[in-house]
Design a binder for these strands. Structure first.
Lengths: 232, 232
DNA sequence: CCAATAGTGTCTGTGAGACAGTATGAG
DNA sequence: CTCATACTGTCTCACAGACACTATTGG
């Protein structure tokens, strides 16, 4: 242990907004705080960088998420740095926020075993006590996720390895909060060349659905036009 | 002065990639380093956050750019945090990189008076000695700027308050390195509703060109389709 | 008049939206 | 068979690309 030395230097932390879609709604992993400040409030998973362990801040984010979920998120990207003298009562602070995505099933066993961790629907956040400016950070993350969903297929990272188009539609609609055209999505899945057609199908009450999986090493494709975003 | 306390805490800095377009090419403001490490190399303008002065890291970036250019950049946005144990020989470091844009004419007087500051063409960077991993940061900034140029009109921030469509075309072409269609650009300028038609025109060897200016308080519009990017 | 640059008219191409129509599973 | 869900065909529409055409300046 060594003394925390804070003279003229801001407190630097790494926090993550981990998304998943489950039961048809977009959820964020939050941790019930067991220490001051904001004792008893919900906060984002995160913490200090450990320069002896973390190769870089991405690793810090991954490590902290691993602690809570027992899983490395399928998608992780820097969101924004938020800083200022009064966002943390302990003093001037600088927070690097990430946003990330996982398939619910991959993390459920561990998350439900961690007493303080919980998936909260973004729709219920207004009624809850959120620590620091984490509410604002979640809003920024959601905006970015929604925007990115319009021109890429990152929502696949909320799904298991093999998934059907219908599952993907549900996830996308939960994220952007609007219906989309199945046909448009299929065109994109096809055009992106990111996915393999699996030899399996999945039952869902009617005709069996084709399963797709991400090609190993496939890059995320950005389309040149946005999906819906308005209309109807 | 107080002792730098580095035990277990990374060094946090803020650096900026300041772009302008001048003489038909995209340029970056670089500073000839007069101290170790990387003495004599070119580095990005930046430095440490001053928690007694800077309301947040944006202010740090602005302040550092003001020192070198005598001007607050027209556009400033966070780019990325880069971190690791070996990118700075002095120890584990975390750098928040910004990218920014100015009109060349606004900053030229001051920049040419600061001995160590210089506008370098991005095309000549490979031949120069660049400090730290700043070369990689510039490349990231350029990629982001190019991408954003395809779906927004941020290149206007490289131009004086009143500008013509032809000037805007030249700036955009310098940024993305490809020709664009004048007609497409005019459609966008019109559709964005970001600009006012000035009552002045500018001479340029032929018919007088209409001058436009950013409406006060106008938000930056993001289009739903990208411009060219390929074709022809 | 001409040369040069500014701006318009308009046709084509591409990919999303809409939605009817077809396919294929379970019971 | 029917119902439910999966998928296809295809028309429309918005907007970028292309490029010929007209407009307006200086000399």
């Amino acid at each position: 242990m060594n003394t925390i030395c804070n003279i003229d230097k801001p407190l630097f932390t790494v926090d993550s907004v981990l998304f998943t879609v489950y039961e048809g709604s977009l959820k964020v992993l939050m941790i019930k705080r067991l220490e001051a400040p904001f004792f008893g409030y919900w906060g984002l998973p995160g913490g200090f960088i450990d320069i002896n362990v973390d190769e870089n801040t991405n690793m810090t984010a991954r490590r902290k998420l691993w602690d809570k979920t027992g899983f490395v998120p399928n998608y992780l990207e820097q969101l924004q740095v938020i800083s200022g003298p009064s966002r943390d009562p302990r003093g001037y602070s600088v927070t690097l926020a990430y946003y990330a995505m996982v398939a619910h099933q991959n993390v459920e066993p561990k998350v439900s075993s961690v007493e303080s961790a919980r998936w909260l629907s973004v729709s219920e956040l207004p009624e809850l006590l959120i620590a620091f400016d984490h509410r604002r950070i979640i809003d920024m993350a959601m905006q970015r996720l929604q925007q990115k969903t319009l021109y890429s297929l990152i929502p696949v990272f909320c799904l298991p390895e093999k998934f059907s188009i219908s599952q993907l539609i549900k996830v996308i609609e939960a994220i952007i909060g609007k219906p989309i055209q199945r046909k448009s999505l299929m065109r994109r899945v096809e055009a992106s060349e990111m996915f393999e057609i699996s030899n399996k199908k999945i039952a869902s009450g009617g005709r069996l659905a084709q399963l797709y999986s991400l090609k190993p090493g496939a890059d995320i494709v950005n389309f040149e036009r946005n999906l819906s975003g308005h209309h109807k």
